[in-house]
Structures are given as structure tokens and as C-alpha cells.
């Protein structure tokens, strides 16, 4: 198992005030070609929390994440960002304009499984691109911030490289810096280490752990049980499109409530992850 020195963010869900809810998912459902992928999922993410979404492949974890910033349009239910409904206009069932949706998306960071860096831009340009051209911020100011961010994720010497020249771990750290540069309310991580060689997983998890420690609000879909156990403030276990079990990592890993979660954890333990 990937060992990570435990520095879990101290906030536990019980202490949260409703006002602290950054992202709320309520009654979300989604199907692809008549195949139900999400069934009535509800979830609240509070400020400063790291919520890890676990579950077997095909359980709907990634779809849930992609519905949160409307990259997939859910069939039912809603997603609220700081109380404001995403994808749908206030007070109705009319779809938002693309521009309004885009404006809301700027407040939600996203880290992709396959990095999805823009190949024609250098590392520095990748991270500066959205703050400068979407948020229309001052370029010199952004540049300074971005360079500091890149140093922070250990890429100070790669700023002028193109993504094609980077290792997977470096690419993913650029991906994380790209989200951070937007100063988002929450960052969504879609299996951020699944495409990495095993020896590169640690450097990415270390960066994510640092963010959790600094109080960044994160939703992380992952298969890294060590990370979930040591860093998550809360675990959401999904199976077959449903949120089956949710609770603190201590409880989830030591004494899961459901058979499905027990089976899932046993399979991981026997695989020696």
C-alpha cells in the first residue's frame, strides 16, 4: 500500500455548518443508452474537506465527478456550487447559456486521469492560459503567481518545456497547478494517478496531500487506498451507481458497514495494494 505520512485535515463533517457547503449534489441520476450509471446520489462537500470517492470500476465514480462541473449533463437532480445551481438557470428548468456555465466552471478545478494538458503550450503557458484568457487577469501578475505555483509543485525547472517532454508524474503536477492557478472553490480529481507508472504515483499524491493540508476543498475519485485512508476527511463508497456507504476513513477502513464495502476492501487487501 502507498504509505503516506498522515496529516489529515482536522475538520470532521459533524462540525460543519450548512454555510460551509461548497458543493452539493442532490438526487443526481444519469444513464447512458438506458444504462443507469448514477442512481439518486446526494452528497455535500464542505469547505476544506477532502472527499474521496471509492468503488469498483464502473460504479459511476467518474460520471459523478463529471456531472459536478456539467461535463456530463445529469438526467435528474441538481448540483449546487456555493448554493448556486450549475447548468440550469435559477428558478426554472431551462439550460444555462454556455457562457454562464463556463463562468461557473471557472470556480471548479479539474484534474484529469490522462492529464489533458494543452500540447501546444509550454508548462507555464498551460497554467497561465485560463487565468489570462478566461478570467482576463493581468498577465504579468498571473505569470508571477504561476511561476511560484510551479516551484511549489516541484516543476520550477520545467516551465518552458512542452508537455510531450514530461513524465506522467510531471504532467499531472502541471495539471494540478493549472487548477490551482484558477483559485477555485473546489478541485475535482478524476483518478489522477491511474495512468501513472507506479513509481510516479507518490510524487502526485504528495502534492495532493499538501493541498489537503493547506485546506483546499477537494473531491478525489481514486483507487489509492493509502491516500484515502491517510488524507481523506470523508469516504464515499459507490457501487452500481449508488452511494452505498459514507463515513470517516477510520471507520470505513476498520469497520465498513456494508457487505459490498467489505468485499471491495478485501479485494484490495488481497491484491497487496
Amino acid at each position: 500500500m502507498q504509505e503516506i505520512a498522515g496529516t489529515r485535515h482536522p475538520v470532521s463533517t459533524a462540525e460543519h455548518d450548512e454555510r460551509d457547503v461548497v458543493l452539493e449534489v442532490s438526487g443526481l441520476s444519469k444513464s447512458f443508452d438506458g444504462n443507469m450509471v448514477l442512481r439518486d446520489i446526494s452528497l455535500k462537500v464542505h469547505k476544506g474537506e477532502t472527499v474521496c470517492v471509492l468503488g469498483p470500476s464502473g460504479s459511476g465514480k467518474s460520471t459523478l465527478l463529471r456531472c459536478m462541473n456539467w461535463l456530463e449533463e445529469p438526467d435528474g437532480g441538481m448540483v449546487l456550487l456555493a448554493g448556486q445551481r450549475i447548468g440550469v438557470r435559477p428558478g426554472g428548468n431551462i439550460r444555462m447559456t454556455d457562457r454562464d456555465l463556463a463562468a461557473m466552471r471557472t470556480r471548479i478545478g479539474m484534474v484529469f486521469q490522462h492529464f489533458a494538458l494543452w500540447p501546444h503550450l509550454t508548462v507555464r503557458q498551460n497554467v497561465m492560459e485560463a487565468p489570462v484568457h478566461v478570467l482576463k487577469r493581468n498577465k504579468a501578475e498571473v505569470r508571477q503567481e504561476v511561476e511560484a505555483l510551479l516551484v511549489r509543485v516541484g516543476l520550477g525547472d520545467k516551465m518552458d518545456s512542452f508537455p510531450a517532454r514530461l513524465s506522467g508524474g510531471q504532467k499531472q503536477r502541471v495539471g494540478i497547478a493549472r487548477s490551482l492557478a484558477m483559485k477555485p472553490d473546489v478541485i475535482l480529481f478524476d483518478e489522477p494517478t491511474s495512468a501513472l507508472d507506479p513509481e510516479l504515483v507518490g510524487e502526485v499524491l504528495a502534492v495532493m496531500q499538501g493541498l489537503a493540508r493547506d485546506g483546499m476543498t477537494m473531491v478525489v475519485v481514486t483507487h489509492e487506498m493509502g491516500f484515502a485512508r491517510d488524507v481523506a476527511s470523508r469516504i464515499v463508497f459507490m457501487d452500481n451507481g449508488k452511494s452505498v456507504e459514507t463515513g470517516s476513513p477510520e471507520k470505513f477502513f476498520a469497520a465498513p458497514e456494508t457487505d459490498r464495502a467489505r468485499q471491495f476492501l478485501m479485494r484490495y487487501a488481497s491484491r497487496g495494494h
Binding site: D98, R99, M110, A116, W118
Partner: peptide, 15 residues
């Protein structure tokens, strides 16, 4: 790659 354009959407690029 589809993800590359999705990343554009996710970061607020439009039109």
C-alpha cells in the same frame, strides 16, 4: 484527444 477539449470546457473556455 477528447480530453483536451474537455479541459478547455472545464476551465471556462467557450465559443
Amino acid at each position: 484527444p477528447k480530453e483536451l477539449i474537455e479541459a478547455g470546457h472545464a476551465f471556462g473556455f467557450v465559443g
